[in-house]
C-alpha cells in the first residue's frame, strides 16, 4: 500500500520546543520523520505569511512549537503566536485549507516525550486528512 507521507513544517522556538526536540534526540526517542524544523528565536516571530508560504509551497501541515504560557523566554511572544494562530484558523477555512492542518503546541525544554508524542500525533492527523489540495478546494468554494 502506498502510504501518504505528509510534508510538515515545524516552526520551533529556540528556548523551549527546539530544545525539547534536542532532548528527544539525546534520549534517542524515535518519531515520525515528517516534521522539518525551522528554528525561530520565539514562536512570536512566526509570521502568518510564513505559514501560508509553507502551505503554498507544498506543506500538508504546519506545527508551531512554543514555550508554555508564562514561560516565554521573551515574556509573551507565545501569546502573540496563540492569537495569530486563532485568527489564522478562521482565515485558512476561507482559503480552502482545513484549520486542523495548523497546530500550535506548548512544549517545554524538558518535555522530550511530549515533543515525540505531539509530532507523531500531528503527523497521523495530517495523514488522515490526506494531501493538501488547497487549489482544488478553493475552486470548489468559488464555484459553489
Amino acid at each position: 500500500m502506498n502510504k501518504f507521507d505528509p510534508s510538515i513544517v515545524g516552526f520551533f522556538c529556540n528556548w523551549c520546543t527546539y530544545l525539547a526536540a534536542d532532548l528527544a534526540g539525546t534520549s534517542r526517542m524515535k518519531y515520525a520523520p515528517n516534521v522539518r524544523v525551522v528554528r525561530t528565536m520565539c514562536s512570536g516571530r512566526v509570521d502568518p505569511q510564513m505559514i501560508l508560504w509553507a502551505f503554498r509551497n507544498g506543506a500538508d501541515g504546519v506545527l508551531i512549537g512554543g514555550c508554555h504560557p508564562g514561560d516565554c523566554h521573551y515574556q509573551e511572544g507565545n501569546y502573540k503566536a496563540l492569537r495569530r494562530t486563532k485568527l489564522l484558523h478562521k482565515m485558512l477555512r476561507q482559503f480552502g485549507i482545513e484549520p486542523e492542518r495548523l497546530r500550535l503546541e506548548w512544549v517545554s525544554a524538558s518535555e522530550g516525550e511530549r515533543l515525540r508524542d505531539v509530532v507523531n500525533e500531528f503527523t497521523e492527523q495530517i495523514r488522515r486528512l490526506g494531501p493538501l489540495r488547497a487549489a482544488e478546494t478553493t475552486k470548489e468554494a468559488v464555484a459553489a
Binding site: 525561530t40 528565536m41 520565539c42 512570536g44 516571530r45 512566526v46 509570521d47 510564513m50 509551497n57
Partner: peptide, 27 residues
C-alpha cells in the same frame, strides 16, 4: 524575539539572522 517583525504589515521591521528572506527561503 522578532515578534514585531512578524506583526509588521509592510515588511519594514526585520530581524538580523531571522530576516523574512532567510526564513521564507528556509521554508
Amino acid at each position: 524575539c522578532g515578534t514585531c517583525v512578524a506583526a509588521c504589515p509592510s515588511g519594514a521591521a526585520q530581524q538580523n539572522l531571522f530576516r523574512d528572506e532567510q526564513l521564507f527561503a528556509e521554508v
